[in-house]
Amino acid sequence: MNPLDYLITAPRLRHRFGGISDMTLWRWLRDPRLQFPKPLVVNGRRYWWLRDLEEWEAAQRLPDRGPNTS
């Protein structure tokens, strides 16, 4: 199984992003500009696909602008 095919829980997700609070996660989910991945809800618990989070993280990185020429 591909390691990116795993689901992670909300506590693990918050830890992954530097220990953000549940309120911060709530805000990220409701801000359409961020396009944060939506969770899969099972029995009232939220889970995220690791591959979706990795894709979102990659999209947040700014493109390399090369060496500073100023």
Results as ranks from 00 to 15, higher is better:
50 L>N: 10
2 N>V: 12
12 R>V: 08
21 S>L: 02
61 R>M: 07
12 R>T: 08
12 R>Q: 12
2 N>D: 15
12 R>N: 09
68 N>Q: 13
22 D>F: 09
51 R>E: 09
42 V>W: 07
20 I>Q: 00
15 H>W: 02
10 A>Q: 01
17 F>G: 00
28 W>Q: 00
64 D>T: 11
31 D>L: 01
70 S>V: 10
49 W>T: 11
18 G>I: 04
21 S>R: 05
33 R>N: 11
32 P>Q: 04
33 R>Q: 12
20 I>D: 02
53 L>I: 14
6 Y>R: 15
34 L>I: 07
4 L>G: 14
64 D>V: 14
50 L>Q: 10
23 M>V: 12
32 P>H: 00
49 W>K: 15
68 N>L: 14
7 L>A: 07
48 W>G: 02
27 R>C: 02
41 V>P: 04
28 W>H: 05
56 W>K: 08
5 D>R: 08
28 W>C: 00
62 L>C: 13
7 L>T: 09
41 V>R: 15
14 R>T: 08
27 R>P: 03
62 L>K: 15
43 N>T: 11
69 T>R: 14
68 N>V: 14
56 W>C: 05
49 W>C: 14
4 L>W: 12
17 F>C: 03
56 W>T: 03
25 L>V: 00
31 D>I: 07
29 L>G: 03
31 D>A: 05
16 R>F: 02
57 E>T: 01
15 H>C: 10
69 T>Y: 07
61 R>F: 08
45 R>C: 12
19 G>A: 07
11 P>I: 00
61 R>N: 08
39 P>A: 06
69 T>D: 09
1 M>A: 15
36 F>S: 00
48 W>I: 06
17 F>M: 03
43 N>K: 13
70 S>E: 13
41 V>L: 14
17 F>E: 03
15 H>M: 09
25 L>D: 01
6 Y>V: 12
41 V>Q: 13
22 D>P: 09
44 G>Q: 10
40 L>V: 11
50 L>I: 09
66 G>E: 01
3 P>G: 13
67 P>G: 07
18 G>P: 04
37 P>A: 08
28 W>T: 06
16 R>Y: 05
9 T>M: 03
10 A>N: 06
16 R>W: 05
50 L>E: 11
52 D>W: 06
29 L>Q: 07
41 V>W: 05
9 T>P: 04
13 L>I: 07
35 Q>M: 05
19 G>Q: 03
36 F>M: 01
62 L>S: 09
